[in-house]
Design a protein around this nucleic acid. Structure first.
Lengths: 185, 185
DNA sequence: TAGCGACGAAACGGTATCGTCCCGTCCTTG
DNA sequence: CAAGGACGGGACGATACCGTTTCGTCGCTA
């Protein structure tokens, strides 16, 4: 039986290595070293670096994303932004997520896993939010959920993950208002 | 005297390697191989991989960005989006830009160069556009140019560079309208 | 036409990681 | 208390780059 504490130590080490060095620079040896574990323990569980990361990503994806149901488009958007900002402000996640997104441009398997983990679930959430807003008459029929996600997630991702900017007091509030205005324009 | 055709071949090879393998995986040997050149030719010009890429980035940055002056906020935003979309649709640039942005999260020197190349100049452009829109009365005084850039560039970057989506007919037009609505909200 | 210098190729010793294998220890289970 | 198995450690040959050096070729220029 594989020891669960060893498995957990490896998982943690992978996230840290991924944040610090990135997927390309990350090595099995480095992971084992950081986890205080033999290489054997890693290879006993996963057959490659890619399989390891893919496993972690899908594990995170399985948790799913809560769908906000605040009763108004603005409320839903605000809640979505709050969740996204929480993730992107996490010092490890904020480096791991862009790293994996860039890596997935070169790796179809990675792309599939990442899309399932972040985009589809988030997209699913966006689709639900849009559908309910349409039902309430807050958005015109035929509103594209993908485009809605662009307008909601794009500015926040750009600021937090791309430019590396901070998140001033009240920024999310203003962004929610702007996103709703953009959606209804 | 260093031969200019050799230098050009190396530059081209760097961009291609950067797009294909990424900064971390890219090697001087690989660059020389792709350029059909000896390693010596590369080391004769640059002292490291980082110096090489930094040099290319600042060279691109030196070209600067045209400031749109269409006379209206909507026109300026639309023009900005057009320029950005042109860059992000280029098959090499669309991979190189996110790659370097992610790399710059780990490399202060890279971060400085990239910021100067893409963000500051684009930010400068955004600042000009915002200032003129304020002067025309299209935007309230005190509008934050950074936030404006988030709202304009964010959705497009998210779609083209992060999610890897396409650019449907008329998307930029709609995005320009949405961005203006978001700015004036 | 003679010489200088950049060129491509290739070899150098050095480092890092690969994935595999073996060893001796320790914990758990039966 | 005996046995099996996962453990950490480390050696293994193989591969890929590192940055440097040497060599012979080729194209300028004086």
């Amino acid at each position: 039986m594989l020891r669960e504490d060893v498995t957990a130590a490896i998982r943690t080490a992978v996230f840290e290595e991924l944040a610090e060095a990135g997927f390309a620079r990350m090595s099995i040896e480095g992971i084992a070293r950081r986890a205080g574990v033999g290489k054997t323990a890693v290879y006993r569980r996963w057959k490659s670096k890619l399989a390891l990361v893919l496993d972690l990503v899908t594990a995170v994806a399985a948790q799913g994303l809560p769908v906000p149901r605040t009763g108004s488009l603005h409320g839903d958007v605000r809640a979505l932004l709050e969740v996204a900002a929480g993730a992107l402000r996490h010092p490890v996640a904020s480096r791991v997520i862009p790293e994996l997104l860039v890596e997935s441009a070169r790796n179809p398997e990675m792309a599939r896993a990442i899309k399932a983990a972040l985009l589809d679930s988030r997209d699913g959430v966006a689709a639900v939010v849009v559908r309910e807003a349409v039902a309430r008459g807050e958005l015109p029929e035929g509103t594209d959920p993908d485009r809605a996600l662009d307008l909601i997630a794009g500015p926040l991702y750009w600021r937090l993950a791309v430019v590396g900017g901070d998140l001033p007091e009240g920024y999310l509030d203003g962004l929610a208002v702007s996103a709703v205005a953009a959606l209804t324009a």
